[in-house]
Design a protein around this nucleic acid. Structure first.
Lengths: 332, 332
DNA sequence: TGTTGACATGCAACCGGTTGCAGGGTACGG
DNA sequence: CCGTACCCTGCAACCGGTTGCATGTCAACA
């Protein structure tokens, strides 16, 4: 309808400014190659006409899109947004734009998404990847990948190690007199879950405690609620959950059965996402997700710069146990 | 280094398959124009060589990038992730990719982001836009825009109307005997805030209640904590907060002063984001953010399809007051 | 057997930038 | 006064797809 929908191109700027198309291009990308007056003239005309460089065209000729993709298992899981935010901010400072996608905890969907983004981005940041290691390695040959919370040799990665904090939590429970505790596990195939479970199991063995592992469907509130029966019938007196959501599901369900925390059960969460808000406030493990997002972003930029030799960076971030009010002496 | 970093192009596929470049292109985009055997042959060769169409090139010649941008004031605010998630899913189903960016509650940053994305996307979804109406209208002429929680005539928009639920909350407080209540306001220039405040004020006037408006710095937990003094000194007995975060900040600070909810103060939140997790569970207004994200996405696709006549769609979503445990009779 | 038309494919221009190379102009040194 | 070097600018090819048009083939029909 309106004439303003016309976006001007370098050709139009060039004509109007009386220079060649290449000069217009250079005025924006390599102004030091032109005389100051030409640059000024071009820029003024461009401003006047509302010129915006067409980034598809630029991407086509330079081979750089200026985009990266950020793939997470579940956007709505409160664990991820702070990480997304910091990564996006970091990218923006380097003049990159970030695509966000949710692979719904599925390795298949994850792979489909990577393929779909492959042509649109220069690199991909994968959070808590569910893909088989083999596929990851294959894809990493085609497109720069940085992993967060997944440990694959040869692919740059940043790991958040909750191990020491969880060990501390187990000792705390033991100190209070708990003999049998449960680990309410998360997605079984993830690095995060394996690593958390291993840390816990190491200490329970060391201290001679009984450890019961109860799997959950998803790391969600509902899944937590769904396993309360199992937890009760397993005779444990305390539980460490894969994350805060599961822990809170447990607490909700317990309270609907008139069982209170920590007098009936001791509960520990992980990730410190909703733990400050629960009733009572949940003892949990705080981790630097914000830092992780930023580092992942910086890492991928580094990879883009080099692009040649084998890249095997590894960054491990530590965590902190935050004691609140859900640990007490065992009930019985 | 490795030969696999070479991404094949249509030319290579064409040569290998013994057809013209255009046939390769058509094999993927308009296969019905080719014989079945040719399509098959091309696809097999493509598969073999690991061909992936270069989307910059495609975007350049078709003018369609297949991307949209989703701009939010604060990714980490738990109000937004469900909306982001549903919008992204909806986009994906239509084969679109979505850029996510955080404009940090700033209209200036918002505008910068729009300009930056302008060349990369076909449309922009703006959540709780902070930009002046005038600028919005100007930008909407250049690029398709859909607004969420912002009401500008002539720009397609979806509004979540918490008005009736908040009115109900005021009535509930009045019914309990509260005479003076506070509205802990959110970002003053936002549509959401104005609309919420107006609804509350309408009922307090109607019922002859005293309404004190207390502004907050940001719609965050910390800002809630920071205004507790003001709230106490204003002599109100109940408060409705712009959102759950502010409400929870209030509750936290009150409890650190040994004041309990609802016996000392009655508190109502909004958005139903963290309200199920607070201690005690916060009475709040539930809204269909998931639905809003999906609708916004569908709307922008609609706009892309038409692209011509004036587009003034408007969709209003209703809300629900969820009564939990933070309303009681006034203290004094 | 000649005409017609549908169908399949190729040719070449085009999308809007970027960039290597060449050439014109000017200043400076010999 | 000429050679040279440097600075600025233009030309034209190229990035990898898409698409209007032309061509060629073959079957059906009169």
């Amino acid at each position: 309808m309106s004439s303003k929908s016309k976006v001007p191109t370098i050709s139009q700027i060039a004509e109007r400014a009386g220079v060649a198309r290449s000069s217009v291009s250079r005025a924006f990308t390599r102004p030091e190659l032109l005389s100051a007056t030409t640059v000024l003239r071009v820029k003024r005309v461009a401003e006047e006409l509302g010129y915006v460089p067409n980034s598809s065209a630029r991407a086509l000729s330079t081979g750089k899109t200026g985009n990266i993709a950020f793939l997470v298992p579940d956007v709505a899981n409160p664990y991820f947004p702070p990480m997304i935010r910091s990564a996006q901010l970091a990218a923006e400072n380097l003049d990159y734009c970030v695509f966000l996608a949710d692979f719904e905890e599925s390795g298949l969907k994850e792979e489909k998404l990577i393929e779909r983004f492959a042509g649109k981005v220069e690199g991909v940041i994968l959070i808590s990847s569910r893909m088989p290691e083999k596929r990851l390695k294959v894809l990493a040959e085609k497109i720069p990948i940085v992993l967060v919370n997944r440990d694959v040799l040869g692919i740059p990665r940043v790991l958040i190690d909750a191990g020491s904090s969880l060990k501390q939590a187990v000792r705390l429970l033991a100190h209070q007199g708990h003999q049998e505790i449960a680990y309410l596990s998360g997605p079984s195939e993830t690095w995060t879950n394996k690593q958390r479970q291993a840390a816990i199991s190491e200490v329970t063995n060391e201290l001679g405690l009984q450890l019961v592992v109860i799997p959950t469907e998803k790391p969600s509130l509902e899944s937590g609620q769904a396993i309360v029966d199992q937890m009760i019938s397993s005779r444990v007196t305390g539980a460490i959950a894969f994350n805060d959501l599961i822990a809170h599901g447990i607490m909700t369900e317990l309270s609907s059965r008139a069982l209170t925390v920590p007098s009936s059960f001791s509960i520990v969460g992980c990730d410190n996402s909703i733990s400050p808000f629960t009733n009572p406030p949940l003892t949990s493990v705080s981790n630097e997700t914000t830092e992780a997002g930023k580092i992942a972003c910086e890492m991928i930029m580094g990879v883009l710069g080099e692009m040649n030799s084998k890249n095997d960076q590894l960054k491990v971030l530590e965590t902190l146990l935050i004691e609140r009010e859900t640990i007490g002496p065992p009930c019985k």
